[in-house]
Every structure is written in structure tokens, then in C-alpha cells.
């Protein structure tokens, strides 16, 4: 009905309209090989897992799975083990992330100096990264061995570190810091090498000492890197499973039962898949929440 009125316009619009779908189509075709595995192996299971959280899925042939709404989450809120696991998880991930960052920053600063055999030292710093978590776990089990372990023989103590109620968590935290240091160190070192030399020269001209240079030049320049690596470390640490599973399996008496271990036990040991899925979803919510607050504050301060 508006054919006559709009006659002049269509050609141009038509041409553009035709081109865009083709471009989009090409883009999709090109992306398909990458998208298929992502959808198949990541998005699919993720949605399935979230769906499971609202059912009473259990292991077993005699069980009929039905939709239960938020019941799993209500049970979680009333489950003392869940809260103590979350508490342990937070202590673990915050301590490990913070101490890992401090230790790595120190190491990175050291490796950034003109040291004798610097190349070798840098390579050595990355070695823990090359080890599979199970190997790290087994190695640390030897380190903490009550009779043959190097810790007891060095300190002259007689403590069964991994079986002691108050020492088990600190013991695995030390291991966590050690095993996560390489990637943090490498990233920070890369960041340090990107800090422009001129800034230090200008600082030196103005009479700034080592500390002053560190506080006013190094740290602000590193800031984006620090925010990135600490956030990533935090997520990795919350989701840590293999290291602790090998070392303590969550014992003694659940003192090192990180949230992921708790979820694993619920699902594969006791067979409550729905409950475990709800746990997984809650962990994601907590991580996103904490990370959101952290990043928001960092970005606000930066701007």
C-alpha cells in the first residue's frame, strides 16, 4: 500500500539488507566449528546441571526423578555441613589467593632483577606448573608424612599434619600457595617487564627511593594485571579439587572439605545428584557475587 511512496528508497535498503544476512551467515558458518563443541560440551552440560538443581535426581534404578523447585536450595541453607564447607572454602580461597599473590609478587620482583643465572631461576620458578595436580598432591603427602616427612624432620616436631584437626587446613593452604605460584609469578613478571623504564628514571630524578618507586610506579602500573590475576586465582582456588582430594580427601573429619569436594561427595559417593547440582549452582552464585563486588570496587577506584 505504500509502494509508490517508498519506491525510491528500497534499492539501497534492499542491497544493504541482502548483504548483511550473507555476512551474518558467513560469520556463523565460520564460527560453527568452534561453536559446536562449546555448545555440546560446555553450554549443554551447564544448562543440564542448572536444571538438575531443581530436581530430586538421585543415583539408582528405582528412583523417579521429579521437579522439586527450590527444595534443594532450602535444604542447603539448613545444612550445617554446607555452611562449614563454604566457610572452609572461603578461608582457603581467600588465604591462598592473597598469600599466593604476595609471594608471587616478591618472586616476580626478584626475578626481574639482574640476577646471576636469571634464566635458570625463571625456568625453575615455573616447574610446579608443569606437574599434574595428582603428582603435587602425592609429593606433598610425603612432605607432610608424620615419620618420614621433611617438615617434621626440619622443624623437629612430631605432628601428623594432615590428620590433625587444627593443622590440616593450614597445611593444605601452604601447598595451595606453592602450587599456584608459577602462573601468578609469570603473569606478574610479564607485567613488570612492561612498566616503562622512563618512569623509574623520572622517579629517580625526583629523588624517590626504592619503596617510593614501588608504591608510586610499580604498583599502579601493575594494577590491571593484579586485578586480573587475583580474580582468576580466586576462581581457580574456589574450584580447586584434585590437589585436596589427593592430599586429604576432605578429612580429618571434614576439616578440609572444600565446596567442590562436598559437591563431589554428594554426587558420586552418596548419589544425590540433584542436591550436588544445587550446591554447584550456589558456588557459582557465591563466586560471581564476591568477584562482582571485588571487580566493581577495583574498577571504581581505577576510574
Amino acid at each position: 500500500m505504500t509502494a509508490t511512496a517508498t519506491k525510491p528508497a528500497p534499492p539501497a535498503r534492499h542491497a544493504r539488507g541482502r548483504q548483511r544476512p550473507r555476512q551474518t551467515r558467513e560469520m556463523w558458518v565460520l564460527m560453527l566449528p568452534a561453536l559446536v563443541p562449546v555448545v555440546l560440551f560446555s553450554v549443554g552440560p551447564l544448562l543440564y546441571g542448572i536444571g538438575l538443581a531443581f530436581t530430586d535426581a538421585e543415583a539408582g534404578r528405582n528412583h523417579e526423578t521429579s521437579f522439586v523447585g527450590l527444595e534443594n536450595f532450602a535444604d542447603l541453607l539448613g545444612d550445617g555441613d554446607f555452611w562449614s564447607s563454604m566457610r572452609i572454602g572461603l578461608i582457603w580461597s581467600v588465604t591462598v589467593t592473597v598469600l599466593q599473590f604476595l609471594a608471587s609478587l616478591g618472586l616476580a620482583l626478584l626475578l626481574n632483577q639482574k640476577l646471576f643465572l636469571r634464566g635458570l631461576a625463571r625456568v625453575l620458578a615455573v616447574v610446579p606448573w608443569a606437574m599434574p595436580p595428582v603428582v603435587i598432591g602425592l609429593m606433598w603427602r610425603l612432605v607432610y608424612h608424620p615419620d618420614a616427612g621433611i617438615v617434621n624432620s626440619t622443624l623437629g616436631t612430631d605432628i601428623n599434619w594432615l590428620a590433625d584437626f587444627s593443622w590440616a587446613l593450614p597445611a593444605i593452604i601452604v601447598m595451595g600457595i606453592w602450587s599456584g605460584m608459577p602462573q601468578t609469578t609469570v603473569v606478574l613478571l610479564a607485567g613488570l617487564q612492561n612498566v616503562p623504564r622512563e618512569l623509574y628514571e623520572a622517579g629517580a630524578m625526583d629523588g624517590a627511593g626504592t619503596w617510593r618507586k614501588f608504591w608510586s610506579i610499580t604498583l599502579p602500573q601493575l594494577r590491571p594485571i593484579i586485578v586480573t590475576i587475583t580474580s582468576l586465582d580466586f576462581v581457580w582456588n574456589v574450584n580447586q579439587f584434585s590437589l585436596v582430594y589427593v592430599l586429604t580427601q576432605g578429612g580429618p573429619g571434614g576439616q578440609t572439605r572444600l565446596p567442590m569436594l562436598f559437591a563431589y561427595e554428594e554426587a558420586f559417593r552418596y548419589g544425590f545428584f540433584g542436591y550436588a547440582a544445587a550446591l554447584g549452582v550456589s558456588i557459582v552464585i557465591v563466586v560471581l557475587g564476591l568477584l562482582g563486588v571485588y571487580l566493581w570496587r577495583q574498577l571504581r577506584e581505577a576510574s
Partner: peptide
């Protein structure tokens, strides 16, 4: 029983034998 054992009995008995 398995869940009772690992969640309740193991820690409780360990604490009891440790005189806590």
C-alpha cells in the same frame, strides 16, 4: 551408613579419641 560414617561418626570418634 556410609554417609553417617564419613560425615558424623568419623569426625566425632576422632574428636572423642583425641580427648576433645
Amino acid at each position: 551408613f556410609d554417609e553417617w560414617k564419613s560425615k558424623v561418626a568419623t569426625p566425632v570418634l576422632q574428636e572423642f579419641f583425641a580427648n576433645k
